[in-house]
């Protein structure tokens, strides 16, 4: 009785371990594969479905469509997810590539996985209003899947991107992050405090001439008071300086639509 019980426990543990092992191995291979993917262009055609001319045209279309508001659209095709699940894979890839601007989260990722026959439109937090799950579902059903069914993956990417760009171009973005009011107030008090200290010190010292100049110094440099805006500006500058293409710290919470054909 007791031995039988022990045997059952051991067998269950072995089955569980084997199952967990298989799942883990699949996830690990997919993770490793994903981590090796680097964002270099708005069109990352790993599966090679576009060809150089159509790829260049799509890059231009995306650049033109997102020039007005700093939003980012990345279109990617993969030969395989290597055991990954499309929704999870796309969200992690989005986070890895940091598509969109930090704080505005105005990025969108269109991902095609050929072996799995799956598509995912992954929407950054900032686009969740304009690109609702239902609208993404429609774009998926009307602009992408029909082409995929015919095997015309290039058209699927192009039309999917065009449909997404049409919505994305009309958007105007505000900082999504909750206000930094506390920080501003703190910075204000800090500057006031420093000013007071310097002012009283100068008054005590009597040197009116240089004193006023010095007391103005911390007030004149308000860089401390606007920390919220600096990353965006810096990121924009970085993109121009480098000439390459990369994400600007955007995040996604898994909104959008996914499906197979």
């Amino acid at each position: 009785m007791r031995r039988a019980y022990r045997l059952v426990v051991v067998a269950a543990a072995a089955v569980w371990a084997a199952g967990a092992g298989v799942v883990w191995a699949g996830a690990a291979e997919s993770d490793a594969w994903r981590k090796g993917l680097a964002l270099e262009s708005p069109v990352m055609d790993y599966a090679g479905v576009l060809g150089p001319e159509r790829q260049a045209a799509l890059v231009e279309a995306i650049k033109a469509g997102t020039a007005s508001n700093g939003a980012q659209l990345v279109v990617a095709s993969l030969p395989s997810l290597k055991g990954g699940e499309i929704g999870d894979f796309a969200n992690k890839l989005f986070e890895q590539w940091q598509i969109g601007e930090k704080g505005k989260d105005n990025g969108v990722l269109l991902l095609l996985a050929l072996e799995e026959r799956q598509v995912d439109i992954e929407v950054g937090y900032g686009f969740e209003g304009a690109l609702s799950d239902a609208l993404c579902g429609r774009i998926r059903d009307e602009a992408i899947i029909p082409h995929c069914k015919e095997g015309d993956y290039a058209a699927a990417l192009e039309e999917g991107a065009a449909a997404l760009l049409k919505v994305m171009a009309g958007e105007v973005f505000a900082e999504r992050k909750k206000s930094n009011a506390g920080l501003y107030i703190f910075a204000g008090f800090f500057i006031l405090f420093v000013g007071l200290v310097v002012w009283s010190a100068c008054k005590g010292g009597g040197g009116e001439g240089d004193g006023s100049e010095e007391s103005l110094a911390p007030v004149k440099s308000p860089s401390r008071a606007t920390p919220g805006r600096s990353p965006v500006r810096h990121a924009g500058g970085g993109a121009r300086r480098g000439g390459g293409f990369h994400g600007h710290g955007g995040r996604s919470g898994g909104g959008g639509a996914r499906g197979g054909w």
């Binding site: 929704g87 969200n91 799950d133 993404c136 579902g137 919470g253 898994g254 959008g256 639509a257």
Partner: peptide, 18 residues
């Protein structure tokens, strides 16, 4: 209903992520 299903499955995906 199809769009509602999209909203629901998108929400399920969000729940998984968060």
């Amino acid at each position: 209903f199809v769009r509602l299903q999209d909203e629901l499955s998108g929400t399920e995906n969000r729940i998984n992520v968060e």
